[in-house]
Design a protein around this nucleic acid. Sequence first.
RNA 1: GGUUCCGUAGCUCAGUUGGAUAGAGCAACAGCCUUCUAAGCUGUAGGCCGAGCGUUCGAGCCGCUCCGGAAUCACCA
Length: 591
Amino acid sequence: MNIEQFLLAKVTDAVTALYGPVDAQAVQIQKTRKEFTGDYTLVVFPLLKASRTSPDATAQAIGEWLAANVAEVGGFNVIKGFLNISLKDGFWAAQFAAIGENFGQGAPTGRTIMVEYSSPNTNKPLHLGHIRNNLLGYSVAEILKACGHRVIKANLVNDRGIHICKSMIAWQLYSGGETPASSGMKGDHLVGKYYVEFDKHYKAEIKELMAAGASEEEAKRTAPVMVQAQQMLRKWEARDPEVYGLWETMNGWVYEGFAKTYKALGVDFDKTYYESNTYLLGKSLVEDGLRKGVFTRREDGSVWIDLTADGLDEKLLLRADGTSVYMTQDLGTAVQRFSEEHLDEEIYVVGNEQNYHFQVLKLILSKLGYPWAENITHLSYGMVELPEGKMKSREGTVVDADDLIEDMVATAREMSAATGKLDDCTEEQAEAISRMVGMGALKYFILKVDPRKTMLFDPRESIDFNGNTGPFIQYTHARIRSILRKAAEAGIAYADTPAPSAYLPEEIGLIKQLLDFPDTVAQAGATCSPAVVGAYAYELAKSFNGYYHDHSILKETDEATRAMRLRLSAQISAVIARGMALLGIEVPERM
RNA sequence: GGUUCCGUAGCUCAGUUGGAUAGAGCAACAGCCUUCUAAGCUGUAGGCCGAGCGUUCGAGCCGCUCCGGAAUCACCA
């Protein structure tokens, strides 16, 4: 039972004793805002009908009852119909002392949740948009684990289709056999280069054909590279050995490249699915849907669902030639996963451009009679925009993931060199810390924004290491760890020292903030929002910095107080580390 | 046009199930290193919460109508 529930029960007792039985809805308790003194606040307006007196008199009466009957209540004040209740310092101190090893880790819920994220195409390297996706997916998965769920991180690799064939045909025609080994280029970048190459040649051919009198549509259809790419797709589907071999080789290059980027980002997966294995799924569902009369077959043989009654459109599920589309595959994979993995819930981390797709997906699944359709969540994150506007690959305004990562790390390196704080470290140590800090800046910058909002990525601002940033929080952690090291060197033991007789208001405040951690994690999990954890870690770090500035920890002369301060600091650094870990951010011992 | 989402300080963003005087950071200005790491701390300034109605004891938050912006409405994925 948490503190709020405890107090709510006591307040309900008070109200019942004073005014008789009252609707539970009318007893509203919340944390007291910072501007006022008190820990929890009872809003008395909803109780006025029962009390039949003024707001202030009601609040006063309840406050007096609580002060007299609840040992933990230390005092209260009444302001304009708000009863602010303060709990005794001793109560908070006892709560602090009771913090255990797995603080913030929720009890097992028995629920299994799959989080699908990343889901890249294998024809080009990852960019800034993918970074947001990957960071979000990883963090949400970690947060859900901390909430006590069993989590499966899944990646669905889009490794087949015409866009892959575009890179392949361009490589065959224009590369002269270039490989990652021969060029020294990262595999995903090399393949991406030929995807761009395809587009260049394709455009040129269209222009040529149109100059020769073809219509635009005709030119697009008959351009030789495109025709060859389509031939290649048909050969791939027929498992032509040569095409299939090339496909495996080039995808292999891409996977090597992706592995490096994923490692740099610190994300991982429990399961990797490939569309080349799953793209035929869902056809049996189509038969099922036809039998149930949910789908209809047209004269040309194509299969559709009419969703106009639900305010949507008609949707194709099977082409006239019997091949399936994206929706069909997604229906199939969803059904397969829920049954094979015994999922209670699935969260798709996919950009908001696919809102319509997921709306339709859920609707179709529920029409097919799957009760778990409502347990599908589309974590629909907003686009990342640049100061110049949207990222457009054709205009060369995409921010490449690998470049961005290296820029951030380089900036961190320069910053460390400028302060000279890492001068006595080894090269390897300094590099590891720079990487931690650079990545911390990048990850925090992206994750501190509410996922579903479109966000602006300003490179200048992202590289700022002051204020509400990852490095600020990491720095607080490093300073605390430094104090704890110094305490250990001086042989100061603090773990088992008895609690002091008195606490400063700031210390009680820090204890309260610490105790909020489990609720914060639960809220972040319920809303799929790493930003909630980020804001918490920032506030905690900020409070500690103020405290640290005003009060010495190691120089405190009272032994019990010094020990308590060390315990408090240690606990804060641990919670910062845990919170940041939920965002995929590491914290250094020094920086 | 239909559907979904967004409009809060100059800029980037917070703002719990409706609660008190709407908060941070950046940028600007003014201070604080002989003292546990100044990647820090303190202060000043900055607001018709897009607009208007409504719901009620109370609205940045809920409802309706506008205005402005985004995404989507493919036999692409």
